[in-house]
């Protein structure tokens, strides 16, 4: 029982991310309105960022800006990946 709870909590982030991803995907394929489609893409994109960043998190870690007193830093690479894309909603 404890194992199941642990597993659910450990994967909770990913599951919500997948639900969000599918929400965006559904909006893109099922709605004819172009603005709605772009908003769907936006939701999808954000969910991908959350997926990357959830994977990069380390228990007890802090943001990867070197400072006194902090010892564990989360993964900086994916943050560099995720912080560059700029959206351009041009419909």
């Amino acid at each position: 029982m404890h194992d199941v709870m642990h597993g659910v909590l450990g994967l909770y982030n990913y599951w919500i991310v997948i639900i969000l991803m599918m929400t965006g995907f559904y909006t893109v394929i099922a709605r004819p309105n172009l603005v709605k489609k772009i908003i769907g893409l936006f939701i999808f994109q954000t969910s991908v960022f959350i997926l990357f960043i959830s994977m990069a998190k380390i228990e007890g870690g802090t943001a990867p800006i070197i400072s006194e007193g902090a010892r564990i830093y989360s993964n900086p690479l994916v943050k560099a990946l995720a912080s560059t894309p700029i959206r351009y909603p041009t419909s």
């Binding site: 597993g7 450990g10 990913y14 599951w15 997948i18 995907f25 994977m55 380390i58 228990e59």
Partner: peptide, 22 residues
Amino acid sequence: VVVATGAALIYGTLDMPHYGDP
């Protein structure tokens, strides 16, 4: 389509390392 894709993705997460695992 969405439910099927979502189910496949969730099945895929079962093998992933847990959130916050160092």
